[in-house]
Amino acid sequence: MTKGKKIKKIEDSILFSLAREETGAFEKLVDQYGNLIWSIARRYLSNQTEAEDAVQEVFIAIWKSAGRFDPTKASEVTFVSMIARRRLIDHLRKIYRHKNLEPIDDCFDDDALETKSILDKSADVQIISEAINQFAEEDKQLLSLSIYQGYSHSEISKLMNIPLGTVKTKIRRNLIQLRETFDQDQNTVVSIHNA
């Protein structure tokens, strides 16, 4: 459960500006992460109206939590995405219904590429991407349905025709494995910095 230290300049962070109540910091936050959070909310929740409400809640929550951001514990994008996920799960709990995904169009444009670029630059996301790529296809699919698409374990069990217990065990095992890989990598970074 120990975590490696992330060494980043807090002064460069939008969250730091937000915590210091700098003028325009909130707008910068929305500019920087608006497309990303909108996209994940659209994918995670079942329709546009719900995504609209959730995205507003996410940004207000990030604004209120900015003072708790600690770059030695998590990167800015990780902090933002943790709050976003927690809010999306809360939102799903409030609406308590699931899950008629509207068709999603392919809609890459320049702004979309900017969104990708935030994640591309995140070393943490890259580490996890590589680790997920090592998983068996079924494991990848299970994690995607659970974590990315917001299906419950019992829904996944029905969708994939796998016993519920197996779904739970596999998701748990895969998350633990991802965390071990991540922690190992972070500790290596710390060792290099301390050498």
Binding site: A74, S129, Y148, R179
Partner: peptide
Amino acid sequence: YEFDEIASLAHMSYHLNDKRIHDKLP
């Protein structure tokens, strides 16, 4: 919130690799 961080990173990883939905905030 033991698994929140790793679940968030995995979420972003799937998002990064999803070619379909990277749309602009209206």
